[in-house]
Nucleic acid binder design. Structure first.
Length: 289
DNA sequence: GTTGCCGGGTC
DNA sequence: GACCCGGCAAC
């Protein structure tokens, strides 16, 4: 998949020149800040609770401007132009299969989004609600979307940090972020999977974000800060290792003190004057170092 | 070689 | 716990 994505990136002059494919964490704050909880025009048909029950159910769609930013306008155009074969609606309990992309988009607009197919031009939102059946790329992406529930940190294997530029492929998980519970969830997402120090680290992060900005702004930064956590963090890993208790048997012999001991002071002739420890060949208790 | 004392044994 | 000592390592 990565190779395919890279190939498509490298062979497409439009993509190479498109400003939308720049993956900076900073500007991505804006779309989330402006992102409504419900998809535009859903008219109450959207049910976030029921949505979580089905992995194949499309995620809450990005606002058009966000989708264009994340995918790149040309990317959307490219995908539309390359659509072939059958197209299946991903809307929950729909699964309608059509032979044309335009027909599928019209279906989604009319049936699921409640829009007037003819009056409203496509803004690309429908792309999120259907998939191309014959496309290996899409099926692979769908599989990945099923593997990326909730937490973006758990969904991205740390062994492939170099795949960060392919971040849009993991969008299905990010798309759910606005519908997720507020920041405190971050600290309680999977406490059993992180070591105490790491957990404290995350709690501190969450506390810091919630302190600085309460409400939606902190939630937005949460989603966009996810890639930052992909960076190698050797220190928490080391902290996960069980603390090795100081082995009593491994302690080296303490260096000989400078103070003269009973033996030296009194001599072997006056052993009765020695302290008990010296008599027992133990550490002298009278002339401590 | 001398010295300090740890580790272990015996009572 | 009291007492003793083999043996190691620093000096």
């Amino acid at each position: 998949m990565a190779a395919t994505a890279l190939t498509s990136l490298s062979t497409s002059p439009l993509l190479l020149g498109a400003p939308g494919v720049t993956f900076s964490t900073e500007p991505c704050l804006e779309p989330w800040r402006e992102a409504p909880v419900q998809p535009p025009g859903s008219g109450g048909g959207w049910d976030p609770a029921s949505d979580q029950s089905s992995p194949s159910t499309p995620s809450p769609p990005l606002p058009p401007e966000a989708a264009h930013f994340l995918f790149g306008e040309s990317a959307l155009r490219k995908r539309k132009s390359s659509l072939q074969g059958l197209f299946q609606c991903l809307w929950k309990r729909c699964g309608k299969v059509l032979s044309s992309a335009s027909g599928m988009q019209r279906h989604i607009r009319l049936v699921h989004l409640g829009r007037q197919a003819e009056l409203e031009q496509s803004d690309g939102e429908e792309d999120f609600y259907y998939t191309e059946l014959d496309s290996g790329m899409d099926s692979l992406t769908d599989g990945l979307s099923g593997l990326t529930p909730g937490s973006p940190t758990a969904s991205v294997p740390p062994a492939f940090p170099h795949l960060e530029p392919l971040e849009p492929l993991a969008l299905p998980s990010l798309l759910r972020l606005p519908a997720m519970p507020p920041p405190p969830v971050l600290s309680t997402t999977s406490p059993s999977q992180v070591c105490p120090s790491d957990h404290a680290h995350q709690v501190g992060k969450a506390a810091g974000s919630s302190q600085g900005a309460q409400g939606h702004s902190s939630a937005s930064s949460q989603g966009c800060l996810a890639p930052v956590r992909l960076e190698p963090q050797p220190t928490p890993v080391r902290a996960c290792a069980p603390a090795l208790p100081a082995k009593p048997s491994a302690n080296p012999r303490k260096p000989r003190g400078d103070a003269k001991k009973c033996r030296k002071v009194y001599g072997m002739d006056h052993r009765d004057l020695w302290c008990t420890a010296c008599r027992w060949k133990k550490a002298c208790q009278r002339f401590l170092d």
